[in-house]
């Protein structure tokens, strides 16, 4: 069902390139109200990298993440995750494609209120029909600082704790790429720091690849590099970012693009 890229196959080992997008476009609406959210994006991220995506509101960051993660289908272009090209258009097919390759962390956590912390964490494994290693789940939850909250429900946790559950849930399937859309957008600065450290650790310690959308230059400074997006196009790139450098770039980006498109 899924074609395998030339860089190697999923079975024989991870590809050196974790994510590749080729001329990806996405348009919403039709007629007069047509919006080009992504306008021919081509990019490549290597394995074990931590990339922040920044840009004005409406520049297409969320759309980019969703197309890359298989939560949405681009209108045209190619998405390759860990050497496997995303094909097929049905939701079930995309879901199966995502399961072993992609983890996603949302600004609004998107945990299930009816399940406990542990149950939320192992849910992706259950759904994928994979063996549920409860000890491993507990280890991961302990690592994100929730070892004493295993039986709690999301509504008994703070925002920062919920986001850490979401990260544990994204880590448990051992995906190649973790996408995070404004994961610290609803958190205070201390909880945000904890979440960012966890994402950094996933990259440094566990060799995962993380792509994170953020509006916060400080959050972006945790990444190895920053991609800037404006009007659905790539508008620059910053290596080893500092908060100040990012803020500076964003300000100039704002010059070219009228705010609130």
């Amino acid at each position: 069902m899924f074609r395998t890229g030339s860089r190697g196959t999923h079975d024989t080992g991870p590809a050196a390139e974790a994510l590749r997008l080729v001329k990806v476009t996405k348009t919403y609406g039709g007629g007069d109200s047509e919006v080009t959210a992504l306008d021919g994006i081509t990019l490549s991220l290597s394995r074990g990298s931590f990339t922040a995506v920044m840009g004005p509101s409406g520049s297409g960051k969320s759309t980019l993440l969703q197309c890359a993660a298989g939560l949405d289908r681009p209108d045209s272009g190619i998405v390759v995750v860990d050497g496997a090209e995303m094909t097929g258009s049905g939701e079930a097919e995309l879901t199966r494609f995502r399961r072993s390759r992609v983890g996603f962390v949302f600004q609004q956590y998107n945990l299930l209120d009816t399940l406990t912390v542990v149950q939320n964490t192992v849910l992706p494994l259950k759904l994928a029909g994979r063996r549920v290693d409860r000890r491993r789940a507990r280890e991961i939850l302990t690592a994100v600082g929730l070892g004493d909250r295993l039986g709690h429900r999301p509504d008994q946790l703070s925002g920062g704790q919920r986001q850490r559950v979401a990260i544990a849930r994204a880590l448990v399937t051992e995906p190649r790429v973790i996408f995070a859309d404004e994961p610290t957008g609803a958190l205070d600065s201390r909880s945000a720091r904890e979440v960012l450290r966890l994402l950094q650790e996933a990259v440094r310690v566990h060799g995962r690849t993380v792509v994170m959308v953020t509006h916060d230059p400080v959050a972006a400074s945790y990444a190895d590099s920053v991609l800037f997006l404006a009007d659905g196009r790539l508008a620059g790139h910053l290596h080893a970012p500092t908060a100040d450098a990012v803020a500076e770039r964003l300000a100039h980006l704002g010059d070219d693009v009228p705010a609130g498109v």
Binding site: L71, E91, A92, T95, R96, R98, R99, F104, F106, N110, L111, L112, D113, T114, N120, L123, P124, L127, A128, R169, T173
Partner: peptide
């Protein structure tokens, strides 16, 4: 919304 969260966690529509 609940179904949406299940789907985002990896449930197919069939599940």
């Amino acid at each position: 919304g609940e179904f949406g969260r299940q789907r985002l966690a990896g449930a197919t529509p069939g599940q």
